[in-house]
Design a protein around this nucleic acid. Sequence first.
DNA 1: GCCAACGTTGGC
DNA 2: GCCAACGTTGGC
Length: 137
Amino acid sequence: MAHWLMKSEPSTWSWAQQVEAGAKGTFWNGVRNHQAKLNLMAMRKGETAFFYHSNEDRAVVGIVEIIKTFYPDPTDESGKFGMVDVRAKKALVKPVPLAAIKAEPKLAKMALVTNSRLSVQPVTDDEWRIVCAMGGL
DNA sequence: GCCAACGTTGGC
DNA sequence: GCCAACGTTGGC
């Protein structure tokens, strides 16, 4: 199963809010980038993604599970973009800051490092394991 | 708050 | 179809 990383500004949508949304989860809307869209479309039910806080926090804080695959985003007037539904699965024991990811040579190829502006990114199995371990899981 | 990197738009 | 100008994202 593939792994992913999804970015959100805590001031817009935080991990705490995601946890509060509970088991029924929420939609992940607002993606307006084609590469991010392709990643959303490739997601399958039951796959997991890191929840990353951009800007204020700059850290991976938790893991969400995809509970509904790609469907149209009603807030997108162009009709081109879409979204998936996710629910909080597990919090990291301790958040993994961007600085720690950049300091780890094995993670030098993460999209988070090489393509920092992409808001929905694939994560390799190796990267997934390493970041989980760094987060205390 | 600044600015680099990137994506998108629009004139030609 | 190219490319300059502009807007946005996100790290610092």
